[in-house]
Design a protein around this nucleic acid. Structure first.
Length: 285
DNA sequence: GGTAAGTCCTGAAGGC
DNA sequence: TGCCTTCAGGACTTAC
C-alpha cells in the first residue's frame, strides 16, 4: 500500500529512468486509469506525444512529471498502483492500464493497477505545481514544512488525532500504516482529541511521524502482498520493522501486552492497549 | 460475503 | 436566519 516512503522510492527510480526522455506514444488501456483527466483518454495520449520529461517531483503521495510543454503528468498510485520500467518486449502485466513508449526505443514506463484507485492525468501548465494537487500539504520531510504551523493547526482541529494525521491538507504522506506506527511510538491512542494535545506532545508526535517515514524511506517502503513494488519490481522490506500494524494478538514489542485491532473509518487501527490507553469519553471499542 | 486501502464527494454539524 | 467552514462517513474497486 503506497504511502510516502513508497512513493518517494518510486520517484527516485523514475528520476533515474525517465528524466530527459522524449515520449513517443501513450496507450491508455483502461479508461478508469485516466478518469481524473476530464478531456478523456484520447486527449491524454495526444497531449503527451513528442513531449520530453524534465523531472519527477512529489507532493505527499502524488507524483508529477514536468514536461517541456509546461504541462505535467500527475500520478497517484492509490492503494495498488505501480509505475514499472520494463523492457519493451516484456509481457504485458495482467492489470496494465497505461503504457508510455519513448522515442529512444528504450524501456517502457507502465502504469499497472489492480484495484484502480490510482490514476494519471495531465495538468495544463502544471509543471511547477499542478493546481489539482496544490491543496495537498507539504510532507514532514519537506525542508519547507513548518513544525510550528503544523502543531498550531493540529491543536486548532476538533477531531481525533489519527484522523488528523490522515488529513492530507494538514500533513501529507501519512497513511494508515505509518499513522499507527507513529502513534505507537508516541504512546498515544488514535482517538485522542487533537485540541487536548499539548504543544510539546504534538511536537513529539510529529517527531515520531518523521522518524517512521525516514526509516521507511531508507528501507524502500513497506510491502505485504507484492501489490507495491518500486519501479524495477522489487518489494520494500520495511514491514519487518513494523511494531503494531498488522500484529493483532501478538505481544507489544515494548510491554508485551497483546496488540489490539479496532475498526476505524472502514479500515483497521492497531495499538497497544497498555501503552496507548483509550481516552476517557471515547465511544468505540 | 467480509476485508483492505486513499481520496473525493456529499450531507451534517458547528461557529459567528 | 443564513452563510461559511469543518467534520464524518459513504462510495469507489477487486482479489482473496
Amino acid at each position: 500500500m503506497p504511502e510516502l516512503p513508497e512513493v518517494e522510492t518510486v520517484r527516485q527510480g523514475l528520476t533515474r529512468w525517465v528524466t530527459g526522455r522524449r515520449i513517443a506514444s501513450v496507450e491508455v488501456r483502461h479508461p478508469r486509469a485516466v478518469r481524473r483527466h476530464a478531456p478523456g483518454g484520447v486527449h491524454f495520449a495526444d497531449v503527451l506525444a513528442d513531449r520530453t520529461v524534465l523531472d519527477v517531483r512529489r507532493r505527499g503521495k502524488y507524483l508529477w512529471l514536468p514536461l517541456d510543454s509546461g504541462d505535467a503528468v500527475i500520478g497517484h498510485l492509490g492503494m495498488s498502483g505501480q509505475l514499472l520500467v520494463q523492457p519493451a518486449d516484456a509481457p504485458d502485466e495482467t492489470h496494465l492500464r497505461v503504457r508510455f513508449r519513448f522515442a529512444d526505443d528504450g524501456p517502457e514506463l507502465r502504469f499497472v493497477d489492480q484495484r484502480t484507485f490510482g490514476g494519471l492525468s495531465v495538468s495544463a501548465g502544471g509543471a511547477e505545481l499542478p493546481v489539482e494537487i496544490a491543496h495537498i500539504a507539504r510532507d514532514p520531510m519537506d525542508p519547507e514544512f513548518s513544525d510550528a504551523a503544523f502543531v498550531a493547526a493540529l491543536r486548532r482541529r476538533r477531531t481525533e488525532v489519527k484522523r488528523a494525521l490522515l488529513d492530507q491538507t494538514l500533513i501529507s504522506g501519512v497513511g494508515n500504516i505509518y499513522a499507527d506506527e507513529a502513534l505507537w511510538r508516541a504512546k498515544l491512542h488514535g482517538a485522542r482529541p487533537t485540541d487536548a494535545l499539548t504543544g510539546p506532545a504534538a511536537l513529539r508526535l510529529l517527531g515520531h511521524v518523521r522518524d517512521v517515514l525516514a526509516e521507511a524511506i531508507t528501507s524502500g517502503g513497506t510491502s505485504f502482498d507484492a501489490l507495491y513494488v518500486n519501479v524495477n519490481g522489487e518489494s520494500g522490506y520495511f514491514d519487518r520493522s513494523l511494531n503494531v500494524y498488522g500484529r493483532e494478538g501478538q505481544p507489544c514489542r515494548r510491554c508485551g501486552a497483546p496488540v489490539r485491532r479496532e475498526a476505524f473509518m472502514n479500515r483497521s487501527s492497531y495499538s497497544c492497549p497498555r501503552c496507548q490507553p483509550r481516552p476517557r469519553g471515547a465511544l468505540r471499542g
